[in-house]
Amino acid sequence: MGEITLKPKVTFKVPIIAETITPDNFAGKPIEEIEKLEMWEGNRKTTLGDLFEAAGSSGEAPADTKIIIEGDVRKVRRIGYKMTDGQILIKGSVGMYLGEKMEGGKIIVEGDADSWVGAGMKGGQIEIKGNAGDYVGAPYRGDTKGMKKGTIIIHGNAGNEVGCWMRGGTIIVKGNAGLFPGIHMKKGTILVEGDCAGRCGAMMKGGKIAILGYVPSVLPSFTFEEIKKSFKVKGEKIKGPFYLFTGDLNENGAGKLYVSTEKNKHLQFYEKYLE
């Protein structure tokens, strides 16, 4: 496998649009050509070579190309845009739109990621070791084409609207999640292992959401169905028990919301509907 290492030459001030940093664009190219790839530094068109120190050699195909990014790239956006294969390893924190419209391959971030991780993602895997911002997997404003396939794993916390307009795939948040996980969701699975700020599955039409931690309340347009023993994510059984709700009934939705019974004693009153 070919490896290319990128290091920022300076500390970036303005946003860097780096949608050319993908194994697809790097594969089969010598360093000199990779350095010529177009980038934007604010309103100036520039090249990768002007902004980054590049070393190593790429593989023949995207599949055998790994890109390692060292240093602070919190201002750098759209890394892994539409990538289809190969790997990107970011050894720090990264800017917005990481892996936007990604189709395959893998991205690992050792630090935090800003908002819109995996925006409109269609395949592949993204793993964030730290925290993620808002709108994980979400599309742009007004659009309804959210994440369709693939997996996003966030080891830390995630912000608001995880999996907004999600159409498929899996999102796992090992820490806590903000408001509105699974808003407008149609299909796919969201697992939040920590607590959630609430309004899970607002306006969802389908798909599954499970919250293993605390939720302040369940939306009034969800109806309580039963207590379930477990929940499955990617074939793996997650032990409950869970309160299972269906919603969002306001949207004639048939989404499933699983909420830990143990961490949510304040929802016990729903059990009166069991008989």
Partner: peptide
């Protein structure tokens, strides 16, 4: 909205 749709409110 749910009440306008004549739905039942399960929370008191």
């Amino acid at each position: 909205r749910w009440a306008v749709k004549n739905g039942e409110l399960e929370q008191e």
